[in-house]
């Protein structure tokens, strides 16, 4: 069974961070060079990735607040 550790939580935050950077790059590009294709991609894919990354981050926070991984072998990473 999949067990949630502190490492898992940190990985979730890391994935969320990288995904947000990608979506921000799309949004910035569509603002600086607004073409039809770029606008559509930024408003669809960019916002999908942005929303997904926020959900991942909130999931990580909820898992962390519920105390997942506090007693794993890595100990506290805080």
């Amino acid at each position: 069974m999949f067990s949630v550790t502190k490492i898992t939580i940190r990985r979730l935050v890391l994935i969320s961070t990288i995904t947000t950077l990608a979506s921000l790059a799309l949004m910035i590009a569509s603002i600086l060079a607004p073409g039809p294709l770029l606008l559509v991609v930024a408003m669809s894919l960019g916002q999908f990735f942005g929303t997904a990354s926020l959900v991942l981050y909130l999931l990580a926070i909820v898992l962390d607040l519920q105390g997942y991984g506090e007693h794993d072998e890595f100990g506290s990473l805080d």
Binding site: T20, M27, I28, G46, G50, L54, Y57
Partner: peptide, 9 residues
């Protein structure tokens, strides 16, 4: 990850 990207969006 949340507030600023939402404002950007």
């Amino acid at each position: 990850l949340g507030v600023m990207p939402l404002a950007t969006s």
